[in-house]
Simulated scan of single mutants.
Amino acid sequence: MNEELKCIGCGATIQTTDKEKLGYTPKSALEKGLEVGEVYCQRCFRLRHYNDIQDISLTDDDFLRLLNSIAEKDALIVNVIDIFDFNGSLIPGLHRFVGNNPVLLVGNKVDILPKSLKRGKLTQWLRERAHEAGLRPVDVVLLSGKKISEMASLMEMIEKHRHGKDVYVVGVTNVGKSTIINGIIKATAGLQEVITTSQFPGTTLDKIEIPLDDGHFLIDTPGIIHQHQMAHYLGKKDLKITSPSKEIKPKTYQLNEGQTLFLGGLARMDYLQGEKNSFTVYVSNELDVHRTKAQGADDFYQKHVGGLLVPPQKEEIPEFPEFTRREFSVDKNTDIVFSGLGWISVREKAVIAAYAPKGVEVVIRKALI
């Protein structure tokens, strides 16, 4: 093809090689589209025929261009984050891009956290962490994108704060933004009966505009890829193991100095210094945690990674990145966070070493639970 084909739904350049990128359509669908003179990308096709919005990821440059354009608009910004991966789902510097526009912070996947965690406490914790990142949200909403019943209250909150303006929904990939958008469509006045792509004129950046009652729009934007999330180093089978789909059951370990915890073969924590201490692990219930001695832990890892210590599974990722070591002195009630995998909560003062694949972020924060 010498001439670039454009999707008539969103304007993205049609391509048949990368499902994750803009403009993807299977070759068979492209041939059919050319026959009838209507070429849609898969995302627009699914929206048109199944009322299903799929998340699409952009390069950092594309996303920054999109964010910069939002600052020039007069709109409400709805920032969706994954509560389970709060640190990994923040957009760095978002407060600089939104200009004077108000931000509504939506914490998704609240159903993953232990039910014992009170929503009021969680809301306050999210607000504090957002402030540390420079964001001053006008409100914080907690929800599970899987529950359509919660979409109506989200729309009420959006109506309360948008003051007759457009609404831009932003978030990194894997936060469940598309599930929320699809939930809003289903929850608002049976819109799914009448959706066509003509009602959702996209732009070359593949934004999708959902009409609101007063002539304004709720605009779904593509997700930005965070390279330091664990998900980028895992295959599909491993992702199923590491991504919690139901309430996580914390596992608590009493450790002495010189003991180690392995989170599958994906991360490791050594207890270097301190009294006997309590460590609680918050990861997917499917992920096995192994306790061993720090002395010999390197050999233990080399021997068992891909076997006893999974993920990673060798058939999924033949070349898994080497671990990088970071040392932290922590106070009581601190979380050691492995981006996109979960966290370990420390009860008392301790010196620990945390290991994660090169490129995956490890940070400490005030304990969530």
Rank of each mutant, 00 (worst) to 15 (best):
L5M: 07
A12M: 08
Y24E: 04
P26I: 05
K27S: 10
V36K: 15
E38D: 12
E38P: 02
L47N: 06
S57H: 13
F63H: 12
L67P: 00
A71R: 15
K73F: 02
A75Y: 07
L76Q: 02
V80L: 06
I81A: 07
F86K: 10
G88I: 03
S89E: 11
I91D: 05
P102K: 07
P102I: 06
L104K: 03
N108G: 01
K109Q: 01
I112C: 04
P114F: 10
L122M: 12
L122Y: 06
W125Y: 15
R127P: 02
E128K: 14
A130G: 06
R136M: 09
R136C: 09
V141G: 05
L143G: 01
S144K: 08
I148H: 13
E150L: 11
E156Y: 10
M157D: 10
I158T: 03
E159C: 09
K160P: 07
K160D: 08
H161R: 09
G164V: 03
T173D: 11
T173E: 15
V175G: 03
N182Y: 00
T188L: 15
Q192T: 13
T197L: 13
F200S: 10
P201H: 12
G202D: 04
K207H: 10
D213M: 10
D214H: 03
D214W: 01
I219A: 03
I225T: 15
H228P: 04
Q229P: 02
L239S: 01
T242E: 00
E247Q: 15
Y253M: 11
N256R: 14
G258K: 05
Q259P: 09
M269Q: 04
D270E: 13
G274T: 04
K276W: 08
N277P: 08
N277A: 08
S278I: 11
F279M: 08
V281E: 05
E286R: 00
T292N: 10
G296M: 09
D298R: 10
K303Y: 14
G306L: 04
G306V: 03
G307K: 15
V310Q: 03
K314C: 04
E315L: 11
E319H: 14
F323G: 03
S329N: 14
K332D: 08
N333V: 07
D335S: 01
V337E: 01
I344D: 00
V346F: 00
E348T: 12
A356D: 01
E361A: 13
V362Q: 04
I364W: 06
R365Q: 15
